[in-house]
Design a protein around this nucleic acid. Structure first.
Length: 218
DNA sequence: ACTCCGATTGAA
DNA sequence: TCAATCGGAGTC
């Protein structure tokens, strides 16, 4: 049975009008929610993030200045910056800081919470019949982890891509992609260097919930 | 117009 | 360990 989401509310804009280092840490434990017209609610709890700074961060896409591709990073906070990479994958960020200043947080891993069956279908995974009714318990731990452990995997699981979602406001009641806060308590956070970059690779800007079984890598 | 390469993933 | 696969950004 899927975990029930209770007492969750849409996150406030002001939460994201801060430095990416702060937002990346505070975003752990929050929920990323996809609301389809036809289909179940699909949601995951954020367990791993990375901060990309506006200045002094050569690894950030915004480092070279504002372009058509990176415009969202310089725009108002709480919007989705979705980019296409390696010719086949999408990754999703949440813009930070007030409009005019660059900064964003990459979502690297989610713990599947709702719409497990839909996630598996979106990921084109071979699943038992019992999982088609969003029965998380019917999936083994390994399969469950593969749904959203990685920035491109979580996008695929929630049907997130650039044409559909880039620039989307994640904080309005009518949006089909939202960020919720259900008060989940994050006990301990681990900070490490970021994954898969070569420039500014020494900065400790990757964060994850200590002990989570759903992070992309140790 | 041409080249280089990447905030990844899944298979070998 | 390595191929897949292509758009963005810089160079010619």
């Amino acid at each position: 049975m899927s975990e029930t989401i209770k007492n969750a509310r849409l996150m406030p804009r002001i939460f994201f009008d801060r430095r990416p280092q702060i937002v990346a840490r505070q975003l752990l434990g929050k929920l990323l929610v996809r609301r389809e017209d036809n289909g179940p609610l699909v949601a995951g709890r954020i367990v791993e993030t990375e901060a990309y700074l506006g200045a002094d961060d050569a690894a950030a896409h915004s480092a070279a200045g504002r372009t058509q591709r990176t415009a969202v990073i310089f725009g108002p906070s709480g919007h989705a910056y979705v980019y296409f990479t390696y010719g086949m994958h999408y990754c999703m960020n949440v813009s930070c800081e007030p409009e005019g200043r660059a900064g964003c947080v990459l979502l690297r891993a989610l713990e599947p919470i709702a719409g497990i069956g839909q996630m598996a279908r979106n990921r084109k995974m071979q699943i038992p019949r019992s999982a088609r009714n969003d029965n998380a318990a019917s999936l083994d731990e390994r399969t469950l982890r593969l749904l959203c452990a990685g920035p491109a995997r979580l996008c695929q699981a929630l049907g997130i891509d650039r044409p559909r979602d880039n620039g989307k406001d994640l904080l309005t009641p009518d949006s089909d992609l939202q960020l919720w806060d259900d008060g989940y308590p994050v006990k301990k956070i681990v900070a490490t260097t970021r994954v898969g970059i070569t420039k500014s690779a020494d900065l400790p800007l990757r964060f994850y919930i200590s002990g989570s079984a759903y992070i992309s890598r140790k």
